[in-house]
Nucleic acid binder design. Sequence first.
DNA 1: ATGTGACTTGGAGTCCGTG
DNA 2: ACACGGACTCCAAGTCACA
Lengths: 74, 74
Amino acid sequence: MTSSLDPTLQTIGKNLRRIRVASGRSQEGLALDAAIDRTYVSQIERGIANPSILVLKKIASCLDANVSDLVVGT
Amino acid sequence: MTSSLDPTLQTIGKNLRRIRVASGRSQEGLALDAAIDRTYVSQIERGIANPSILVLKKIASCLDANVSDLVVGT
DNA sequence: ATGTGACTTGGAGTCCGTG
DNA sequence: ACACGGACTCCAAGTCACA
């Protein structure tokens, strides 16, 4: 509930983008590996989506990171 | 997808229960504070629910913990 | 005070496109 | 390669009765 513009989601989005770019990967490539939609990765990075832990876990795994790395600062 | 009996969800459930019991609180009391249903807390602790980060964040806040504490071991 | 199955519904997540 | 939107599908979210 109250999904849009939530500071927690914003922070996670920034964390994801930072880690993804640092690994030199595109949203599309990551989405393909994680078996999720490319537009959904975009939504998460922009902080307008409220993903489940399973989705977050899949993304973290494909980035050789863990979920804790994605939620730092929340 | 593949929600039931997922090892990630099981671990999070165990983490939650450990932290909650350590703070001497009941599922009901926690659910009341976090403004979520008592049975939903039960489902998360049993690892059969796949909660969103916003739900996880609310629970962590009420336990004076952060989301990272709930996802350790995943 | 907690586990559990069944239920409804809003939103998570997908798929098509565009600039 | 990414932001953004519309129109979907399907599961997370939230509730209930009962054990």
